[in-house]
């Protein structure tokens, strides 16, 4: 059988196919309502729901909750009748499957392991994601777009969130589920999995590009300078830009919020940057220290 059909019809992966359809549907619905409200706002009209009347909870709301509950129950029951939950062989510590995949919702993090060492991909970045999500309401000082769909009034927050949600999270999950085979190597849907496949990885470290051994003192210093420049430059550059162009925004933001936003943002952007470095420039590590490598 075609390996792709085999992968998408694996019982557990049906959930991911369902997720792709549901997420795409709701993404379109959300942006459609956002653009609709944007047109209303531009025309100076009230947005959807602004002139809402009150209705009784009993029965309009209770009725629709009951209907949704029944639909969900019927849907899950049909799913459970049609597809059986898999049960593999009994656990065997001496037999490692290849690839050994985490549950699907963690495959985005497992995918990060390609680009970062485990302490970053598995511990620091996930912690920053959770902290960053909780911080959103406190660092987003834009009072507009509260309680209705809109894009025009909060472009940047939606763009940044959507990039994190759809690309760095969901797309990496889809890649981890459908495009990763033995040895976590990339397999196209039409390719057979080959357990004997070996890939020569001509990866080098950043300092070797200029001919310096990345494990030497000079390499250490180059790595430290580049990493430091990214962190410090990333922290300072937006300040310079806003100071010049929107000083009033910077005053409104305040120093603590500024540091939090920019710190979270440069950490988030380190993911696509590391991806480009590895995939395009074949660079594995930027900075190697005796304790950790980035």
């Amino acid at each position: 059988m075609n390996p792709f059909i085999e992968i998408i019809t694996q019982p557990d992966n049906i959930a991911i196919v369902i997720m792709i359809f549901m997420v795409s549907f709701f993404m379109v619905w959300a942006f459609q309502q956002a653009f609709h409200n944007d047109r209303l706002l531009a025309a100076g009209l009230p947005v959807d729901g602004e002139n809402d009347k009150f209705v009784d909870t009993f029965k309009p709301l209770v009725r629709i909750e009951l209907i949704i509950a029944l639909v969900v129950m019927v849907g899950l029951t049909v799913w459970s009748i049609l597809v059986d939950a898999p049960l593999e062989e009994i656990a065997n510590p001496t037999l490692t499957p290849n690839p050994a995949k985490a549950p699907w919702y963690f495959l985005g993090l497992q995918e990060l392991l390609v680009y970062f060492d485990p302490w970053l991909a598995g511990v620091v970045l996930p912690s920053l994601i959770v902290v960053g999500l909780i911080a959103i309401p406190y660092i987003d000082i834009n009072p507009k777009g509260n309680g209705y769909y809109t894009f025009a009034e909060r472009k940047w927050s939606i763009i940044i969130f959507s990039f994190g949600f759809f690309v760095l999270w969901l797309l990496l999950i889809v890649i981890g589920v459908f495009f990763r085979g033995p040895g976590w190597l990339w397999y196209w849907p039409w390719q057979e999995w080959d357990h004997a496949r070996v890939v020569f990885e001509p990866f080098r470290d950043l300092s070797s590009v200029v001919g310096v051994d990345s494990r030497s003192m000079a390499g250490f210093i180059i790595g430290a300078v580049v990493t430091g420049a990214y962190l410090i430059g990333g922290m300072v550059a937006p300040y310079m830009y806003w100071k010049k162009n929107h000083p009033e925004f910077l005053t409104k933001l305040g120093m603590i919020r500024y540091i939090t936003i920019v710190f979270l943002f440069i950490n988030m952007m380190s993911i696509p940057i590391k991806m480009v470095l590895r995939l395009v420039f074949l660079i594995k590590y930027v900075w190697i220290t005796p304790w950790f490598s980035i």
Partner: peptide, 18 residues
């Protein structure tokens, strides 16, 4: 799946704001 979509909806409507 639905809890992730719930979070997306709350973000898109700006419902996390004050």
């Amino acid at each position: 799946i639905v809890v992730m979509i719930h979070m997306f909806r709350v973000f898109m409507t700006g419902s996390y704001k004050a």
